[in-house]
């Protein structure tokens, strides 16, 4: 392949969610967004690619240590004739279990250019209590 350098993106098909036969919420397909998760000193960073999702269509829910991400894509009218249909349009869903180390109050979520950025800060460690030793 002469015209491909190693920086060229390889195509990835969307990964459909196995709903175990259950009906999806929107009637359309549901996909797992590709994600990056990394940790640094301050906390945990999650980035998910959800093209088509706006802030209003996004729900990030934390219940009993289970973090659920759901991104709804506005449904588009399907009147036009398809000449090429290489990808399907559907909502995005992914779920994780988060440990108690996370400061659940401090979680922030932003979505820009179809990429969700979630930040889950670690809890500040309990301040060591200094006990003054007095000499007589």
């Amino acid at each position: 392949m002469a015209d491909t350098d190693d920086k060229t993106i390889n195509v990835q098909d969307k990964s459909p969610v196995d709903t175990g036969g259950a009906e999806s919420m929107s009637g359309g397909p549901l996909f797992y967004p590709p994600i990056d998760i990394w940790e640094d000193e301050q906390g945990l960073h999650i980035e998910a690619e959800m093209p088509g999702v706006e802030a209003s269509g996004l729900s990030v829910d934390l219940k009993e240590n289970t973090l659920t991400i759901l991104g709804k894509v506005p449904q588009r009218p399907q009147e036009a004739k398809h000449l090429k249909e290489e990808f399907e349009i559907g909502d995005y869903y992914r779920q994780f279990t988060v440990s108690d180390v996370i400061d659940q109050e401090g979680i922030t979520a932003k979505i820009k250019d179809g990429v969700l950025a979630l930040y889950l800060p670690k809890q500040a460690p309990a301040q060591p209590r200094k006990i003054q030793v007095l000499s007589e």
Partner: peptide, 12 residues
Amino acid sequence: ANFFRKERVEGT
């Protein structure tokens, strides 16, 4: 950064 998941791709 310590990665748990790396699924996003970049490139030309």
